[in-house]
Design a protein around this nucleic acid. Structure first.
Lengths: 390, 390
DNA sequence: CTTGAAAGTTCAACTTACTTGAGTTAACCC
DNA sequence: GGGTTAACTCAAGTAAGTTGAACTTTCAAG
């Protein structure tokens, strides 16, 4: 939560090797199965070095051989592919009312997903339950504990004291807690903490709509509205971990500026419907109303378009992403409608005449995504080279 | 200009050493003179490794000994400080009407600054003049050519084809050109290309208001309005190098949304004055009008406040910076007035009750800043560790 | 004043991991 | 089938960081 910025650290043999393992895995992840020589060319390492690293990765189960590929003359290269069962990540989302847990393999596939009610918002109670969920995940999938790379943790943001009043989503008594070390102790794993939007943005990168993207923005429809910014495969967290609080940017409303998420968010849709006497407590309810062409819902959509376009133009011009992904806890049909009818500005750096790809994409949404994202944080580490202390 | 994203590269002995040199220089730059043991602790390297690296850096002239500092018991540590004369950077800003050039030392001090009219917007003509300016800078300061680390280059953005009509600031016939290699050939130096806002943001980091900041936003008043985003000491460039085009985000105007820079920029102030028959062709003119309390200028300031506050809130909530710096080609008094009267939102992640530092800072403004910033791009490289190909 | 602990630095031996160059294997082409 | 090409391996070489012992300088306690 608080900034424990990892210090800038020097390189030595061990940290270089760890960096290089991530380089090799990263190339295979983004390009697909490859031979050693090709990886060597792509990474600027010698074939021999790549060979040694691959031997290690095979030993550790991260890679598997995938036949030989003949490409013209010469000895056909032995292909190496990710070995999904070789490494796993555990992810947890803690909400004021529930705990979501997920187990992913190295390719980002979900092996286990579960929801439990959060009975007591007490850190000790929650930690015990998270540990139990981890054990259940391992037991039910047959994954061995030593194959767990780490755990991701999604907590309600924003972190620390800010000017944002989000009391509804906060967990009492957690502000003082260093959640990462608290859970690291209980789980005996490396723990990475993020907010829901950032984590879900990573889920899109590991197994969703952003697998081919290095630099993108992810607009997250939770109760409110969040934004995950990914630049060159890395999350932009801001100085205090609260970057991406897009729900609170001012946009012009009918009576002066209002916060974006007053007009564009699941909660705003539900409130709008409620004002007209329509209940839509769940995402499935919203989906049904959309399929039924509920006029009030379409009215909300029509009102949401302008402020959404506003936000999209702002994101594009500030951040110049390859694409903006819309996702989160919102029916896919509604996201698709928002994308199709988005009022994208011509006055945007993203309005390139030579574009090959759409400016907007729909994410792999679903109610488990934040927990998946939490696990994706861990998986992404394996593919993201960096010189870091052990 | 176009994305030539440096490939993700593996570490070897040589690249590790280069990384570690930057780690050591970076610690000294941010913390001030230090001893070897202290650097070793901060960097996670052994004392011996730091010792070897420092011997190298002394040889190359980047560091100088700075006496011994006794701190309690034990042998007082030999302090090492940056040696300003040990390395230099050349920076150029090319505008449609003029070329600005600057030479900086390792501490960011300006040793040389010059403006030349741009007579022909022809790449060959410009390159010849830039080379001549480099030679003049070296000759007049007595800096030896082998002490030049590289050259920074500021060109009018946005780069490549975008949806933004900025014809006024574009150089005809340059769009097809790979400016970096074009000038690298002529200068026989490594060349880094950025837009004015990004470059000036780096100038603030190297020798201005951001020396203590790792993550900040820099709002650049040029003719229009630009934004440089720096996260953990690195520029955020976006996927196509056009991040930070904040001038084009929509803000509510008197008759519907308008682009921010229509209301907040030097040009918008000058246009406002002109509509009232007041000429203010230069920055000095604007300054004079401000000192004379020109009511039309104060009227412009009053109108600029709301949209500026809007933009600031957006930056804070999207990016969560340590601070936002206002700078560029605008009189300091006007920037100070904008800062003092800024309508900062309470609904912002930056509105932290435990803040130690102001949310807004004034940059070291001045008309040469983009050329200084160009040079600062180079200087900043020396302090920013990264594993990169030779 | 002497002695000992503490901290910075250096020396020399050691270790890790990458590179280099020669040699091997296997596919394609003529 | 012989030559060429490309991937791969082996073995030796090298760069750079680590380790542990020795040395120096300062401070503090007796």
């Amino acid at each position: 939560m608080n900034e424990k910025l990892q210090p800038i650290v020097g390189a030595n043999a061990g940290r270089s090797r760890s960096h290089n393992r991530q380089v090799v895995l990263g190339h295979i992840k983004t390009t697909g199965p490859m031979g050693r020589a090709q990886i060597a060319r792509a990474s600027g390492l010698s074939t021999q070095a790549v060979s040694n690293i691959i031997a290690d990765l095979l030993d550790d189960g991260f890679l598997r051989e995938d036949g030989r590929l003949s490409a013209g003359r010469g000895l056909p290269a032995v292909q190496y592919a990710l070995n999904p069962g070789g490494a796993h990540a555990f992810g947890v989302e803690i909400r004021p009312d529930a705990i979501f847990a997920a187990l992913l393999d190295l390719e980002g596939k979900t092996l286990f997903a579960r929801r439990e009610p959060l009975e007591k918002p007490d850190p000790a109670w929650v930690r015990d339950h998270v540990v139990a969920l981890r054990d259940a995940a391992l037991a039910e999938t047959g994954v061995r504990a030593e194959r767990l790379l780490g755990a991701g943790l999604v907590l309600p943001g924003p972190f620390g004291q800010t000017g944002l009043a989000d009391a509804g989503s906060e967990l009492p008594g957690w502000h003082q807690l260093d959640a990462a070390s608290w859970f690291a102790q209980g789980l005996d794993l490396a723990v990475y903490v993020e907010n829901d939007a950032n984590a879900t943005a990573m889920a899109e990168r590991v197994s969703g709509a952003a697998q081919e993207l290095e630099t993108y923005a992810f607009l997250y429809f939770g109760a409110g509205l969040g934004l995950g910014l990914v630049s060159q495969g890395r999350l932009i967290r801001g100085a205090f971990g609260n970057a991406g609080e897009i729900g609170h940017i001012p946009v012009p409303g009918p009576d002066g500026p209002v916060a974006l998420e007053q007009l564009v968010s699941r909660l705003s849709a539900q409130r709008h419907l409620k004002r007209h006497g329509i209940t839509a407590g769940s995402i499935a309810d919203l989906d049904r109303h959309f399929q039924d062409q509920c006029p009030e819902l379409f009215d909300w959509l029509a009102r949401a378009r302008a402020p959404l376009g506003y936000a999209l133009t702002t994101i594009e011009n500030l951040f110049d992403p390859q694409a903006i992904i819309l996702g989160g806890a919102m029916p896919e049909a509604i996201l698709d409608d928002l994308i199709e009818n988005a009022a994208l500005s011509g006055q945007s750096v993203s309005n390139r005449p030579d574009r090959q790809t759409p400016r907007l994409l729909r994410g792999a949404s679903g109610r488990m995504t934040a927990a998946l994202g939490a696990a994706a944080l861990v998986i992404n580490q394996s593919f993201t080279p960096q010189i870091a202390a052990a």
